[in-house]
């Protein structure tokens, strides 16, 4: 695969000597995310059933509450730093960017989506169903179980950070997204993001209605309904494709005129 494309160099314009897309940061980020997810899974394997069955035990506090207290501020702290960076370094001259720069930014947006969908996959598929294995084996005693501490309070914040970063990147760097809010992009970011507040309803229901975990119980339907908003990413890709097709022609036309 031609992972890295080289723009044709223009001596007078150093902007165009940059790569059109650089997948190395994506690969590194995937590696970091993968290390986090695999690390959490191994941690569960080692300590979930050993020290995670009784939330009142000192071992639970040592092995699980500590993880919870570390991961939440750490993940959100990194997230706020990324969001602040994206906002503070925004392009304040969006009307002056040329076609190649805009095209490069569309590729960067696609790179953000590669990270966002990768992180969403781990909660929606792997750790999401893994949560069922815990609940079908152990009756919950609090909202903080070894399964929840991983799936709800580590995996969900991670994809929220990447989703909101995608949204921020688009609105602050790409003209089309700065002039109009993309409805599908907002749906695709905010919908899955609302899964975190939906936990409030879920945990309230489990605390007062039923402790048993029938996964297809209506109490859980908020999660998949919010997950449906992921369909809207197709609309965002369509918006990107439409504009990129115009940019392709524009760049080709400019090159022809030069020749």
């Amino acid at each position: 695969m031609h992972a890295i494309l080289e723009s044709e160099p223009r001596a007078a314009d150093p902007q165009h000597t940059k790569k059109l897309i650089n997948l190395v940061p994506v690969a590194i980020s995937w590696g970091v995310l993968l290390a986090i997810y695999v690390g959490l899974r191994l941690y569960q394997q080692a300590f979930a059933f050993k020290y995670g069955l009784d939330s009142t035990s000192p071992e639970f506090a040592t092995y699980w509450l500590t993880l919870f207290k570390v991961e939440v501020p750490l993940i959100f702290g990194v997230g706020f730093a990324i969001w602040a960076y994206l906002w503070l370094t925004r392009d304040k001259n969006l009307d002056k960017i040329d076609a190649e720069t805009e095209l490069r930014r569309y590729f960067s947006l696609v790179a953000w989506f590669l990270l966002y969908t990768f992180s969403f996959l781990w909660i929606a598929s792997f750790f999401g169903e893994s949560d069922a294995t815990w609940h079908q084996t152990v009756i919950r005693d609090t909202a903080l179980t070894p399964s929840h501490i991983v799936v709800f309070y580590a995996c969900i914040p991670l994809y929220i950070i990447l989703g909101v970063s995608s949204l921020l990147y688009a609105t602050t760097r790409i003209p089309k997204f700065s002039k109009g809010y993309s409805v599908p992009l907002i749906m695709a970011v905010l919908g899955p993001g609302l899964i975190l507040p939906n936990l409030g309803y879920n945990e309230w229901g489990h605390a007062f209605w039923l402790t048993e975990e029938i996964f297809s119980h209506p109490l859980h339907w908020g999660f998949p309904v919010l997950g449906w908003t992921g369909f809207a990413l197709g609309g965002v890709l369509l918006q990107a494709t439409m504009r990129m097709a115009e940019l392709f022609k524009e760049i080709d036309g400019a090159n022809l005129a030069k020749a």
Binding site: I21, F107, L114, I123, S125, G128, E129, F215, F223
Partner: peptide, 27 residues
């Protein structure tokens, strides 16, 4: 290149949305 990237994103998206949808309605 854009096509290749879209294929990966689409695969992650289809996989994750299908799984979370099925998991909590018929899991």
């Amino acid at each position: 290149t854009f096509d290749y990237l879209i294929v990966v994103i689409a695969a992650f998206l289809v996989w994750s949305v299908t799984h979370i949808h099925f998991l909590l309605f018929a899991g």
